[in-house]
Every structure is written in structure tokens, then in C-alpha cells.
Amino acid sequence: MQYKKKNQINIYDYIVYIVFAIVLLLFALWLGGNFFSASNLLNVTRQTAMVSIMAVAMCFVIASGEIDLSVGAVVALSALTAAWILEKTNNIMFALMGALVLGILIGAINGLLVTLLNIPSFLATLGTSSIIRGFAMWFTATKAISIRNETFNFMFGMGKIKFMPIVFIWTVLVLIIGYIQLTKLSYGKKVLAIGGNQIAARYSGINITKIKILIFSEMGLLSAFAGIIYAARMQTARYTYGQGDEMNVIAAVVLGGTAMSGGKGNIIGAVIGSLLLGVINNGLIIGGLDTSQQQIVRGFIIIIAVAFSTFSRKK
């Protein structure tokens, strides 16, 4: 018997977009033009750029069944490293390379701890997180380093091309690369296979150690890049940067439809998830809620959004 089936579109894979649209709509109705204007929304993309960029890499980490809690600390140390190199040499290339290579190294160490020493990633990265943050404090004796290189600050911070914030362009670039990696390269297929069933991946001849080290290295690289953006936006580097960011990044990825248990990843969803968190923050501030109220409402919205998306995914 021959039968045809429609190309099924699973609405639940798109739930984050729907939630995003609803939240956008509700804030627009509530706050009107103050919120729903091109300049404010572009502002949100600038505020969320760091979390969005890290969410792309975190998508791979979580899709492979791991987690990385050290990203916030890497942000701080790389921001300080870039600022310090700029202070000494005033060479943007050196500053970039220094910070990014440092990020890759830290990521690779995380990967080695998880694969060769078999330490659960939650604990391994919790440990490295503390070490890195400690280094960041020690390195400058907790003092801030200001950045006077205007080109650097323009390229990675407050610059605009016409009306388009440059950090937004960086975010889109990272998003495209991540998307291609996950869906078009064999690397992505291997990451998903490891997260979906590590034993089957091993029996299929996938080098799990190598892939996991690559995943963590990419996480380190993009966390360092986020640190550079932080530093350039603030024109200063401080050891406090990125504190608590790991949780926002993880929340963004999960909101975006990546399974915490691994095997499934959604890069675009992760960035939308990050924007969703940013929109909620932004809307609540414009709405005039004080900090304590913002915290409470934000908590509720996150729980409802995650419940909505995980509940619907089970069907």
C-alpha cells in the first residue's frame, strides 16, 4: 500500500519563536513606542550580544550531553588580558590573539579534564571557573584596567555601521558559523551522535575524546570573544565581568530547544532564547519596575517559558 504523508512541521520545535513573539507583543501592548522601537530593539541585541555568542558554543556543549560553568570566569580573564595587552602594546591584533588563545587553552583544559580524567563536566568546570576567576582577581589586584584604544572600542563595542551596531553583526556572524557547523559539517553530526548515545557513537568509530575537546575549546574561544566585547563596550576590563552569565547562557540554550540530556541542538533557537531573556530584562526596566520586582517577574517568566517548551516537547 502506498500512502503519502505531508511534510510534518513539528510546531514544538518552534515554540521558542512563538514565546518570543508573544512576549514581544505583550510588552509592545503594555509599553508602546518606548519599548517597541527600532532603536530600543537594536539596543537589546547589543546588550545580549555576549550571551548570544556564548549560547552558540554552549549549544554544542549541551547537545553533546555536557555543561560548562566556567564561561563567566573566562569572560572576565579574557577581558582583562585584552585590556592589559592593549595597555602594554596598544596593538589590537596582539590583544585579540592573546585573549582568544587563552580562551581556547582554558576550553581545551576543561575538555581534557572531562575526557581523560573522566570528571563530570559540571564539577570540572565549576572548579576551573573558580580558578580562573581567582586568577582574574590576582592578575590586577582586583583593579580595573581602562582601554583607551578607540578603534578597539569601536570595532568590538559601541561602534555602528549606519544604524547597525557592530556587535550585532558579530553576533550574526557567530550564529551563521555555528549554524553551519551544527547542520552542515560532519563535526555537528558527531556532536549530536555523542549526545544522543555515546556508546553507539563509540561503536560507530567516533573519536569522542577529540570531539569533546574541540567542543570545550570552541566554548572557551567564544567566551573569550564575549569577554572582548564586554571590555570594548565598557572601555574597561574588570574581574567582575560575566558573573552569573553561565546561567543565562544555559537558560538561553535550553529555552531555544536544545535538550539538557543531549542529542539535540538548535543554534538559532539559542540566540532567540538569549534575545528573549534580553527583551524581558529591557521591558521590565522600561516598565519602571524596581530591581527586586524585576528579579521576581523575570524568574516567573523564565519558569513559564521553559515549562511551556519542555511540556510541549514531551508530546
Binding site: 552542515k184 560532519s186 558527531k190 548515545n197 553507539a200 563509540r202 561503536y203 560507530s204 542529542g263
Partner: peptide
């Protein structure tokens, strides 16, 4: 050990044949 059950038939088949489904590195 044989399959990633949560993945599709084609994703399971290509996982051992990634070299064969690529062109200039892209799947």
C-alpha cells in the same frame, strides 16, 4: 550500541559515512 534512537534513519546511516556525504567539507 547500534543506534542513536532519538535520531532519524538518515542521521544514523550517515554517521559512519560522513566522508561520503560531503563535498568541499559540507554535508
Amino acid at each position: 550500541s547500534g543506534l542513536v534512537l532519538m535520531h532519524s534513519l538518515c542521521d544514523n546511516i550517515i554517521i559512519t559515512n560522513l566522508d561520503k556525504v560531503r563535498k568541499y567539507g559540507f554535508i
